[in-house]
Design a protein around this nucleic acid. Structure first.
Length: 435
RNA sequence: GGAGAGGUGGGUGAGUUCGGUUUAAACCACAUUCCUGCUAAGAAUGCGGCCUGUUAACGCGGGCCCGAGGGUUCAAAUCCCUCCCUCUCCGCCA
């Protein structure tokens, strides 16, 4: 949620920032008008309420003094006033609700570093990395045996069984087998082990209440992209960011404990409603995938460093895995609702010949903290909203795809990087006859 | 799922019988100051959050918050309803 006080204080600044994201000036003017109206109504209603309370107090006094006549008169007066108060409160409530609904639909203000742009085509590439990279060369050279799509490799080696996945849950629910399943498990362990010294490992629930989903900004705006379990009022989490943001929901944190850094691997569920028929082959876009998330609650001053740390960890994993990747600075049009600034990591898939998004490292400022009401006590004793930052490190389905393609050998087997050996029982080769 | 007991400020905990002298007592913890004078004790004061009016600001005022949400009433921590959570017992279960 954006800062209403800031909107009052400097409406032009807020409007200019939001205009970059396509929010019109008139939309904001309507909110400003609603807010002004709300405060007038609120003041009236509270004035009446104060009078009712004072009269009630006097009724009590009169009753104790056994002065029934005065008590009855005051009761009558208070009753009349109470009816007016109720009317005023109801009117205030209607406006408050309307105002809140509007505010929930407003996205975060983009940071100044966020480039202009309408969609993903306007994202700005910051850098590329690959093993043995050369200046002036766009991409590494891949052999023919690396130019095979992972869904074909998956069938050849019996490690990815999309047909069974579709039989069980419908298309875009992948099923991994044998060495493929084991690779997925290895990746999660590998990443969590890397982070656990500095980030507390969490294993959160996979479902969340509506309130929890509201806190991160996934609801109400993106309801169509979420799986809902209506009977129990629950939603399947699209990312661990959702439960992690609500761990401290409604709390006032001790500044000395910040930053609070958390990591979690969870399944992530996405309906991909707006993407029907797009990029649907193999693991390019799936309804369920495992992902390790890094997350921090921090002070505004700590946010930059926290964001940079998550980015460098995600990049570090990619480098350890020897995958080719690039870093994108997302433009205004591609930014998530809650984010003030996001850097995406995309890994190169030689078999599909495409870049695949495997991490999104975002800084939310106090946008989520305001919704989730997470504050901290500053050294001068007052309270302030925390900043939240998070990023994937990493999303495994697409990493899996890039790995099996990149490390496919001429004989059709896969020889994985040695860093994974401890998590694979020392066996880094995947063949069609699993040992 | 069934039966019972609970949920009050940072913590402990009173108030709920019977609605009104409670703007939630008291204690602990914490902060500042004073006194004393040294591995310590005592005293005073302060001690929450959110919204809002006013003010240049310090501040002053109003409203809301006793698990959540409704209701009754002139007036609700207190009475009524629904829901959530915790504990005990039973049932079921990986």
């Amino acid at each position: 949620m954006i800062d209403l006080a800031q909107l009052r204080r400097e409406p032009d600044v807020v409007k200019a920032a939001l205009a970059r994201r396509g929010v019109t000036s008139s939309t904001m003017d309507e909110i400003i008008a609603l807010d002004a109206r709300h405060r007038v109504l609120l003041h009236d209603a509270e004035g009446l309420r104060a009078e009712v309370k004072e009269l009630s107090r006097q009724v009590g006094e009169a009753r104790r003094a056994k002065d029934a006549e005065v008590a009855d008169a005051l009761t009558l007066e208070s009753r009349t006033l109470g009816d007016k108060e109720r009317e005023a409160s109801d009117a205030t409530e209607v406006v408050a609700r309307e105002l809140n609904e509007r505010l929930l639909m407003i996205p975060n203000l983009p940071a100044p570093e966020v480039p202009d742009g309408l969609d993903e085509n306007d994202n700005v590439e910051l850098r590329r990395w690959w093993v043995g990279m050369d200046a002036g060369v766009a991409l590494p050279t891949y052999a023919e045996h690396q130019r095979v799509a992972h869904w074909e490799i998956g069938v050849q080696l019996g490690i990815l069984d999309l047909e069974s996945g579709a039989k069980i849950a419908g298309s875009m629910f992948p099923l991994f087998r044998a060495g493929g399943a084991r690779l997925l498990r290895a990746l999660g362990f590998f990443a969590l082990d890397r982070h656990m010294a500095d980030y507390e490992e969490i294993r959160p629930p996979s479902f969340a209440l509506t309130e929890t989903m509201m806190s991160t900004g996934h609801l109400p705006k993106s309801a169509d992209d979420m799986y809902a379990i209506e009977r129990d009022g629950l939603w399947a989490i699209p990312t661990a960011e959702v439960p992690l943001t609500s761990i401290h929901r409604g709390e006032i944190l001790d500044e000395a404990k910040l930053p609070i850094r958390l990591t979690a691997q969870t399944a992530c569920f996405r309906r991909e409603a707006g993407a029907a028929g797009r990029d649907t082959r193999g693991l390019l876009r799936v309804h369920e995938f495992d992902k390790v998330e890094l997350f921090a609650y921090c002070t505004p001053e700590q946010a930059d460093a926290a964001h940079a740390d998550i980015l460098s960890r995600a990049e570090g994993l990619l480098q350890s895995l020897g995958l080719t990747y690039r870093v994108l600075n997302l433009c205004c049009g591609d930014l998530g609702t809650s984010s003030a600034r996001t850097l995406d990591l995309e890994v190169f898939s030689p078999g599909v010949d495409r870049w695949l998004e495997v991490s999104s490292v975002s800084w939310f400022r106090d946008f989520q903290a305001r919704r989730a009401n997470v504050r901290y006590r500053t050294s001068d004793g007052s309270t302030a909203l925390v900043h939240t930052v998070n990023g994937s490190a990493l999303a495994w389905a697409r990493i899996w795809a890039a790995l099996v393609e990149t490390y496919r050998q001429a004989d059709g087997s896969i020889l994985l990087p040695d860093v994974l050996a401890p998590y694979l029982g020392g066996e880094t080769r995947i063949t069609s006859r699993p040992s």
